[in-house]
Amino acid sequence: MLGIPVIAWMAFFLAVPYVLLLLQSFWEAGLWSTLHIWNIQNYTAVLFGKSLAGNIYLPVLIRSIENGMMVTVFATLIGFPVAYLLAFKLRKRRMLVYTLVIVPLWASYLLRAYAWKVILGNNGLLGSVLNHIGLGNSFLSNILYSRAAVVIALTHIFTPFMILSIYSVLERVPASLISASKDLGVGRLGTFFKIVLPLSLPGVIAGATFTLGLATGDFVAPILVGGPSNSMIGNIIYSEFGATGDYPLGSAIAFVLLAFIIVLVAISTLAERREQI
């Protein structure tokens, strides 16, 4: 009985909009309004392109997934060591580092993405430092409005989630398991690969799913630091619902992206279940 308000809330604000969006994706955009003509042309447009313009949607979707994957890899590479330090190495300074990890989460997402514009911009922080040390003309000084800038900004935004996700798992690995491994003759590196890493996998999988899903669908970082040639699938959806006004096509793209994320989450759930102890 207590669940009814929650179910009503979810139905009204989540299920109904999704169903409407799904219905809309099978309709057609007219000149001034959406025409309720049932067809799958929006999906063929997303997957195979429109006859005249060629396919502009699928390459962007693939580029978005690639960006998401790069962000996931970098966030894991940065996040794992930090989470490991937090869980096993730091004692007195654990709270300090932990706070430093979560402080960025208190700042607005938009602000954090915008900060990279300031850092990477033409006369920005990075550029002026490089100028000072005589590297003013290296490729790094002109990094704003590039794919690299998008990946950097998104990595910065999602790394804290990755750290927290891995840390929450590592924290529950008893120190006695590490002692036991060493006791049985296995050194530090062996213990890491045979005990710590396998036991941390559920956290890595959860963090990677989260990061890949959200980074792939992101549209703020590309606007601020990516520029028009580096837009991601989120920007396309945004423009279909905005300037272009093709709601059905926007809905179809959104559902293709959603399908990708559902498959991703399904794989990750299966993988996590296999790792279950």
Binding site: P174, S176, L177, S179, A180, S181, K182, D183, L184, G185, V186, G187, I195, P198, L199, E275, I277
Partner: peptide
Amino acid sequence: EPPFRRPVNTVFQQYALFPH
């Protein structure tokens, strides 16, 4: 010497079996 270079083995209080 570190634990892994001693001819000594331990049975831990909470057994410390590797769960995976």
